[in-house]
Amino acid sequence: MKIVVIADTHLKEGKLPSRLTDELQAADLVVHAGDWKTESVYKDLGQYGKVAGVYGNIDGEEIRKLLPAKEVLNVQGFTIGVVHGHGDKKSTEKRAIEAFSDDQPDVIIFGHSHIPMIQYFKKQLLINPGSPTDKRTLPYYSFAILEIGEEIHAELIFFSDKN
């Protein structure tokens, strides 16, 4: 199963980058870790298939009515926790881990910092896909691909052209 993982699109208007939409063509699932900005991003992603996700700190009522603050997905025998990661004190990563202290998912997907990373914390795979549309001071836009079969494989995709 191929999952395209994104966060922090922050799109009021405009389109998703072609590098991302190319990968979405072959996705079985799209997971968005919050800060959509508008419901139109949800609808755009829905054209490619099933979409799951959570709302972030900048999302308004339309997104908050549509999506939860935290979600646990069951995919081919693995559990995936999704949360935006915003809050007070501690790092975004620590807040994401704490959000699932009772659930202990195999994978935790989060956003908020716009800093892409894939690493293990104990036995949990942590994924922050960065942002495909708002790289801030980073040199590249990014998203992640999570492939789930008998094992889990995750990779970050970096690109420089937002068109």
Rank of each mutant, 00 (worst) to 15 (best):
L24N: 08
P116A: 13
D59I: 06
G130Y: 04
K2I: 14
G111M: 05
M117S: 15
V5C: 02
F159S: 11
A96W: 08
H10M: 09
G34W: 04
I58A: 07
S91N: 01
Q25W: 10
I63K: 07
E71R: 13
L11P: 00
I157Y: 00
I148D: 06
V41M: 07
G130T: 02
T38P: 08
F78N: 05
H112M: 01
K123P: 02
V72K: 07
T38K: 11
Q124C: 08
Q124V: 15
V31N: 05
D88I: 14
A154W: 04
I115Y: 07
E155W: 00
G87A: 07
I157G: 00
V51F: 01
H86T: 03
M117N: 13
Q47L: 13
I80V: 15
E71H: 08
T21F: 03
T137V: 10
A26K: 14
I97M: 08
K12W: 14
F158D: 00
I127P: 01
S101H: 13
D134C: 06
K135P: 15
W36M: 10
F78I: 03
I127N: 02
S40A: 14
A52F: 00
I58S: 12
R95T: 02
I152V: 10
I108L: 00
D35H: 05
Y141I: 03
L73I: 11
G149Y: 06
P116D: 12
G85W: 02
L45G: 01
I63R: 06
V31D: 03
L24E: 09
K70G: 03
F110Q: 03
E62N: 12
I115N: 12
D8S: 09
K122F: 10
V82T: 12
L16S: 13
A96N: 09
